[in-house]
Amino acid sequence: MEAIVSIAIGILTGSGVWLLLRPRTFQVIIGLSLLSYAVNLFIFSTGGLRIGAPPILQRGEAGTLAQYADPLPQALVLTAIVISFATTALFLVLLLAARGLTGTDHVDGREPER
């Protein structure tokens, strides 16, 4: 499972970075989204990948990570998802404003000279 998750994170990051470096604003925003998915998966995996482990302790159990899945990375992911969602929405607005004001969807606000 570790291999599959890490390959998935790798592919997401690679595609994200590639798109981030493209000259069109829409490609950049998709790149940022892919990157944030990759980061979310990465945070999620730092708690250790486990199947079927309960996220909370049973009554009377001693608190070690051997018995339950670490809930903190999940909380972090939740926060990160909310924040990246909000910033992506904000960026989308700016993208549209830039398109409207400059008349081009190039990230520099003007077409490169050929």
Binding site: V28, L32, P73, V107
Partner: peptide, 23 residues
């Protein structure tokens, strides 16, 4: 708008690096 576009992309990317480092 032009300068803000770059500012936001750079800082969003930096925030993602922040998350990777923290985790």
């Amino acid at each position: 708008i032009r300068a803000g576009l770059h500012y936001i992309v750079v800082n969003l990317t930096a925030s993602l690096l922040f998350l990777i480092g923290v985790s």
